[in-house]
């Protein structure tokens, strides 16, 4: 309906579309594996569902209580990795960072939490393959958005 709409400069059209309609967002009914990355300070999390067929990612979904940057990056990341190999997925975040240009420290942490949740899902898959009963695998983030905000606040003073 609005395909020809020209989006003004600033927030680019692709980012706005991911903001308005995040792709692959929500729960997956029968994933191969599930990973969670958690920022213990802010309690922000990303949960990542991966459906694998051998080394190919057949489907991926994510959910988060985090900020819009996390949503946009999660949406872009899942779009890039579906129907690609896990090896390709390991390089996808770098490609997104290049595509988005210079990221703030906070945005880098958002990218990191999305990627960590994906990595956690692959660890969960390994554990399941090894016969362990693990509902999901949890990775705790080393860097927190809260600390970054404090640091940025200090540097602005």
């Amino acid at each position: 309906m609005f395909e020809d709409t020209k989006v003004p400069e600033g927030i680019n059209k692709e980012t706005l579309e991911h903001l308005m309609n995040p792709q692959n967002y929500g729960k997956m009914e029968h994933p191969s594996c599930v990973g969670v990355a958690l920022d213990e300070k802010t309690k922000e999390y990303v949960i990542f569902y991966t459906l694998l067929d051998a080394d190919t990612i057949k489907d991926a979904k994510f959910a988060t209580n985090g900020c819009q940057d996390t949503v946009v990056i999660g949406s872009m990341f899942t779009q890039m990795i579906i129907n690609n190999s896990t090896q390709y997925a390991n390089t996808a975040i770098e490609k997104i960072v290049k595509k988005l240009g210079k990221l703030s420290i906070q945005q880098q942490i958002c990218a990191d939490i999305v990627f960590s949740a994906f990595k956690a899902s692959l660890i969960n898959f390994e554990h399941i393959q090894n016969g362990e009963k693990e509902e999901l695998h949890l990775l705790k983030m080393k860097e927190s958005c809260e600390v970054v905000e404090d640091k940025e606040g200090e540097s602005n003073e």
Binding site: T5, V7, P8, E9, G10, I11, K13, L16, L19
Partner: peptide, 20 residues
Amino acid sequence: NMKRVWLDKNLSQEQIDALT
């Protein structure tokens, strides 16, 4: 319509981005 224009306000693009 994704136009991001507030007709009866005179907001700069930077202000519109922040508001968005």
